[in-house]
Design a protein around this nucleic acid. Structure first.
Lengths: 196, 196
DNA sequence: CAAAAAACATACTAATTAGTATGTTTTTGT
DNA sequence: ACAAAAACATACTAATTAGTATGTTTTTTG
């Protein structure tokens, strides 16, 4: 990899960590460059401004990371209900890039940014729609397979699952505990069973 | 009401509006006092610092406002499933103090504050536990009434419902639309029916 | 190899911020 | 009424911030 690309990725990775921990506005450029060996000149060579860097985090870090996991876990041989459950379980319990006390990076950004920054809204909408479509596709495949009831509204179900996931992350963040995750998974399993 | 108490409430109400719109950190004291007729001297007479004001918003605005609505809607004569559904429906669709594009005030604060401010964490935990306990009490009453299945884990269900509510708010905020609310309510109704 | 472009480094600026110092005015108790 | 306390007003400070101006070094290209 080219040296300048490494610099760029160093900035993005460190910025992602800081933003995941403290939020976008509270993560200063001085702090991002201070904790790496990058200087301000390099930062503004790679990014026009802070906003452009934020969008790059969504497009170049969040998007590939999660989409790969979605595809991997949803495309396995199990029934849709089982693979969706195992995806959510993986995200909540096993993924150790995510921390209970910090919640979901995408959800954090939605909360902080969408009311005042349209570029973030667009990038985040794009990201989330990708997830929703993967869930919907999985459900609809199940309906053709006869593993999911044909009366089920795949759109609403995907919406419901993503909502619950985000909310469980939020409750876990509040309580700094994975207990809300376990409770959520318990009810999710029952809910998914009813879709069969 | 005493004049000084009006000043205090003026500050709290304006600060709540600004924080609900822009977040805690992005709401400056200068802006809070600038858009009211209050001065900095008055602000720091009523509050030791910004944090103390933030906690007061949770305890004196958020807490009474929502708790009253919870009690009112959960204590009606319908079955628990119906009253819980109508509470969530009210919060999502009818409450016009809440705006689709701004999400849920409590959830916003949890996202922004809990990773770095313990006083906020405690106040928010307190608030949320109150809601959860009201939901749990409603469910358990239903179990005695035989309107809710005895096998149901009231704790997990309350957790699941609050999570879904928060997530739906987050999705609505992202899409700046109440469509995610409608989809969530549709699935919530099915889920609640399965508890009977 | 040399010129040009890419990549990075340093020092600065203007705006914004929470909080303070030091007052004046208003209310309250006697 | 009048002293004391409560309530409010104004001007300031020190720290932090995103972004810029102006360089130097490194890499690429002809």
């Amino acid at each position: 990899m080219k040296k300048s690309q490494i610099t760029r990725l160093t900035i993005l990775n460190k910025a992602f960590d800081l933003i995941y921990s403290n939020g976008y506005r509270a993560s200063s450029i001085d702090e991002i460059i201070g904790t790496t060996k990058v200087t301000k000149g390099a930062f503004y060579y790679h990014f026009k401004n802070k906003e452009e860097m934020g969008i790059a985090i969504i497009d170049e870090i969040l998007k590939p990371r999660l989409s790969n996991k979605f595809v991997e876990l949803l495309e396995n041989k199990n029934s849709p209900a089982e693979s969706i459950y195992s995806l959510i379980r993986y995200l909540l319990i096993e993924d150790d890039l995510l921390k209970v006390e910090l919640g979901c990076p995408a959800s954090n950004l939605i909360q902080e940014m969408t009311p005042w920054n349209n570029s973030f809204s667009i990038a985040l909408n794009n990201l989330v729609n990708q997830w929703l479509h993967l869930l919907i596709a999985t459900l609809e495949k199940g309906q053709k397979n006869e593993t999911i009831n044909k009366g089920v509204d795949a759109n609403s179900v995907a919406n419901f699952i993503l909502s619950g996931y985000w909310g469980a992350r939020n409750l876990g963040k509040l309580e700094k505990s994975d207990k809300p995750y376990k409770a959520y998974l318990k009810e999710l399993k029952m809910y998914l069973k009813a879709l069969e």
